[in-house]
Every structure is written in C-alpha cells, then in structure tokens.
Design a binder for these strands. Sequence first.
DNA 1: AGACGCTATGTAACCGGTTGCACAGAGACG
DNA 2: CGTCTCTGTGCAACCGGTTACATAGCGTCT
Lengths: 345, 345
Amino acid sequence: MTTPKNRVPTITEVASAAGVSRATVSRTFSRPELLTPETTERVRAVAARLGYVPNQVARALSTGRAGNIALIVPDIANPFFPPLIRAAQARADEAGYAVFLGDSDEKPEREDILLTKIAAQVDGFILASPRLDEQRVRVHAARRPLILINRDIEGLPRVLMDVDAGITQAIAHLAELGHRHIAYVSGPPASWANQQRQKAAVKAAKRLGLTLVAIPANHPTYQGGQAAVPELLRTDVTATVAFDDLVAQGIMAGLAERGVQVPRDMSIVGFDDVLAARTYPPLTTVAAHCAEAGARAVELLGEILQSGRHPTARVVIPTELVVRATTSQPRRRQAGRGKPLAAAS
Amino acid sequence: MTTPKNRVPTITEVASAAGVSRATVSRTFSRPELLTPETTERVRAVAARLGYVPNQVARALSTGRAGNIALIVPDIANPFFPPLIRAAQARADEAGYAVFLGDSDEKPEREDILLTKIAAQVDGFILASPRLDEQRVRVHAARRPLILINRDIEGLPRVLMDVDAGITQAIAHLAELGHRHIAYVSGPPASWANQQRQKAAVKAAKRLGLTLVAIPANHPTYQGGQAAVPELLRTDVTATVAFDDLVAQGIMAGLAERGVQVPRDMSIVGFDDVLAARTYPPLTTVAAHCAEAGARAVELLGEILQSGRHPTARVVIPTELVVRATTSQPRRRQAGRGKPLAAAS
DNA sequence: AGACGCTATGTAACCGGTTGCACAGAGACG
DNA sequence: CGTCTCTGTGCAACCGGTTACATAGCGTCT
C-alpha cells in the first residue's frame, strides 16, 4: 500500500513532497556526501514513503552510464555456459550491474546484430566463445569496452583457458595407463577453442610418441558425440579425448548402446568439467573452471569501467585433469570392431 | 571505417548532415509512413554512412517503452531453465525485445530487489518458478505486465505445466508394470511446482491403490538426489518418481554406487525431460516442454504489451510420460535392504 | 566589522530521442 | 480565384534524471 497508484513517482514529486529542489533529491541518491545528514535522511524518508526508485533509464541518458553489461553466448543450452553465466551474473550484481543476455544461436551475424542493438544500453560487453570474425569484433570493441572469453584477439582484454596444460595432463595420464592409440573427437571447426584443444592434443601425443586420430563431431552436442561413435569404432584406438563433456557423454551413450564398456573397452576423457560428476561412470575430464572465467571477465570489465583505462589484460585460467572413473588400462579389442572379447577378466 | 571516431553519432548530427530537422530523422526510424519515400531514403543513406543507430535509452525515456523484457529465474544452472531461457530469448528477439536475465539464486528477497532495480528498464517481466511470496508478486505485477511460469496466482497471466496428467501417466505406467510401493523424492518444499507434483502423485497413487512414501531431497540437485538414496533404500519401494530429472539422475548415481541396478532393482521416473535422453540408461520421464513454456510466456507478454489490455490468461502446457529405459517390472528385493537378491532372473 | 572561504542547496542546461501542434504548399472544389 | 483539406516537415516541449555554476548563510581571521 505504499503507492495507491501503480505508477512510480518521479524525482519532481519527491522534491515537492520533501520541500527541496530536484537537485537535492538527485544528490540524495547519487552523491549524498554533498548534503547534510539531516537532509538526506528526510528526503530518503519521503522517497521511501512514496515508493520512489531512481529511474535508471533517465539516469543512463544523462550520465552516459547505463549500469548494465551485456553477455553474449553462442548457446545457452550448452552446459558449458550456464555456470559461466551464473557466475558472471552474480559478480555483476555485486558490482551493481544488471545483465543483458544474448544468445547468438551459434550464428556470427546474430552476434553482430545483438551487439549493435543493445550497445547504447550497456556500459560494456562480454563475448563468450564468439563466432564473429575478428574485424567485426574489433569494430565493436572500439565503441565500448569488450571482454572476450575463450577467444584470443591481440590487443583486446580476454579470459582464456590454459588448454595446453589440461590436455597435456590428460594425454600423459592415458599414456601412463598404457594407451598407445588415441582419438580426439573434435568440436566445431570454426571454434577457436576446438582448434586450441586439437592442436594441444596433437602436440602432446607427438611428444609422448602416441598416435592420434582426429574424428569430427559436426556439432558440439550429445548427438554429435553419439554420431561419431561408428567412426570411432572403426579405428583401433583404446582411448578417446572429447572436445567437451557433452560430446564425451554422447560418445559414452553411443558406446553403451553397442555394448562397449567404459572404461574397460574404451577410456574417455572430457573437457570443461561441467557435467562430469553427473555421468555414470563419473567422467574423467579436464576442469576448465568456466564459472571462474565468467566471474573474472566481469571483474575485468568492472575494472575497465571504473578506471576508464583500457588495459589489454590476458587472463589465463589454469586447467587440470580430474581423474574419475572413465579411464583405465587398455584391454585388447578385436581389431577394427567395437565388440569386446568374450574372454573373462 | 564508417565512423573514424569511436562514438556513435546522435540524431542532431544526422539531421544537419542530411539537411533536415531532428524530427524528420526521428520519424525516418520510428514512423516512416509520415514521410515521403524520398526523404526517408535520403536520411537513411546519410544515417548509414555516419553509422547512426537510434539510441534506445533516449527512446525509452521519451516514449516510456524500453524495448526490453526481464526474465527472472531461480537458478540458471538448473538444467530446467536453459532451454526455457533459450526459447524465451529467441521469441523476444523476433519481437524486437532484448532480454535482461536475472538469477535470484533461489532467494525470494533477491527476486524482489532485481524486480525493483530493473523495473524502469523493461516493459514487462517473466518470472519463472518464483519463490517470492504472493503479495510481493502482486505489487510488482501492479506496476508492469508480469507473466508467471510455474506458479499459479489468481488474476495474473501465467504459464503452467499440466502436472497432473504427466504424473498420473507415470504412476499408472508403474502400476501397470506391477509396482505396488513407490516413493516420491521431493524438491524444495517452498516450491509450488513441488507441491503440485507431490499432490498429483499422492492422488494418483491413492486412486490406483498403491502406497506412496515421500522422501525429501533438500535441494533440487544431483547431490540432493544422491543424498536421498540411503533413506530410499530403507523403504521397500520398487519404483521412484523424482521431483525432476536432476534429482532422478542423482538417485541413479547413488543407486549405482551401492550396486542397485536400474531398472532391474529399482525403476525411476524423472520430470521435465531436460536431460533424460542423456542419462544412461536413458531416463523414463515426464516431458514438461519447458522450452515451449518460455516461448509462450514471451508471446503472452508481447500480446499484453501490444494491446495494452491485461488479460489474465492461464496457459496450460500439456505434459506426457516418455518411456525410456529406467522403468521395468519390479523384482523382489531383500526387505529393507538395498542389496538385490542373488537369485537369477 | 568587513572580507573571505566553505558548505549546503537551488537554478537551469543538458543527455538524445519523441510527438503535439503550427504551418507552408499543393491540389480540390465551389 | 478564394477557401478548404490534406500532406510533409519543422518547432519546441517533454521524458526523468545529473551536474556546472550561482548563491545564501555562516563561521573565521585580521
């Protein structure tokens, strides 16, 4: 019952109700240190009684600061992003920013449109795993502070995963278990993250003297992983490193359907650690700490917005292998066929 | 290279460059039918050359229409929400709205704060599974159009799942298979959705003459489900209906750890169908079509914003049981113990 | 006592659009 | 040919805040 009318009062109404000027009301909420404590107290009381809340739109127009940030992701439904979004949102909230969320549906041109459309409403952007070409990203970055996640463009502030460390650990772990032939089931070729992971895997395998075959999963999804299984079984690998956990999970399902047991007949390593603990058996994977990436990106953006400076930080988040239950010593399989041997353990 | 400076031009600059008034430029973008085609064409050309984009903040201030909507969810990381968010975002985008995303972290007071803070920046709200008390929801609804998802408050527009139908099918399916004692592993007690589901389960079980025990999972999470397993095994039930897929997955993992096989020793039914196809074995579950709920909510909000009318629609989305591989005929188990009998099939 | 400085508050311009109203010019009509 | 209507455009107020600058009041110092 604070406001009988369903309209929120304006600064003018509060001013006249409190017997002060509009400027004083404004200062009560934005720069109270300029006023006597008695004044702010009185104005606050009146404002509370009327249900006044400073209008963020008007504030944004006159100050040029929106108090919002935008977070653009290629696919919210990809389990990599929710923890990232959640952490980003929480940090933004602490810093007093509201968050615009954009889903580009993996389409570069939709990223471009989203960025253009909401530019005026936000103080800065966070682009997670952008598919947009470098030139366009730079254009947007020239207008507003912009932080990249999972994309490395020289001169722009960015938060990256230390893919090399994690993948190297994973391959070393497999080598130690005795695997000699391994597969990398890749993600979208246009993805920078995929290129990084694949390159790291190739390098690590070479260093350890393992053979590595790359198998494409057209889409970085559960279905994509499942669809890659037939080709996977046509090879003689005993272990698979997947582009991400989702693909790994798809592979596991595909293998299970064909009676290939994990890890007995095939070891599996995922990437991201976003649903690793939820699979059965629990997935061995490279933890990418995506929540931390989201939080760091917001912090970085906050610093830039505070300082006005434009440091081109390059934050690298460490990754590490988390060994769970989908990796074990290899076991001889019928060459070229998925069927496990009938022999007892 | 459209703009050498990294500032976007204002309507005034476009106006003088095109040799027209600011009003004409404004109308070029908002009401072109008032101008001659030649004029709009000329102004558009100039605007494009300068890289002009109408400032949404200024527009919002003068029109009172923000062109944004807010979507508040209790936990982005809960797999129920990403498909919903994604669908909502896609529909909003089609209708020309940008989306504010708020995560309340399951806390009613954070919902309240979020709603208050961004009210001025949006034309309407969508509240998914709100934890906020009814009175406060009504206060916010009085200020701006507000659509509820998964919460039934008389007089407010809302999108609901037909919980009864799905749960009834699920219980009937279990009864048909021969189960007599079943458990319902519940979600958060404060959740309206949980109350609905539990009530529906009790009703259906009673009608079919089954006994039903309710077991609480403190949190609607994988861990919550896992934690409920010991209590579950203390009972003599042969089938379990879980609050949602996540809890079901947790239960499956908890059972697997203890050597209880699904569905041989325990049948499991989930709810939502958000990750059902990704578990192994694939989960029998009630499909709630959460993406559709998100889309419908946005459509409803769009209609209200268009018409200015305030219909208190009550959209009910049908649900249905999807039988996959976690339900089968019951098998006698040692009373009160989780261990399956050694006897052969 | 007068000049000075400091502090608290008010005045008014401004942010970048939109829109009611005025008005000019063209065509229609008596 | 004058008036009337209609159409396209401009003028200026307005949305709800912020903020540079002006000013009033008061204590302090010489």
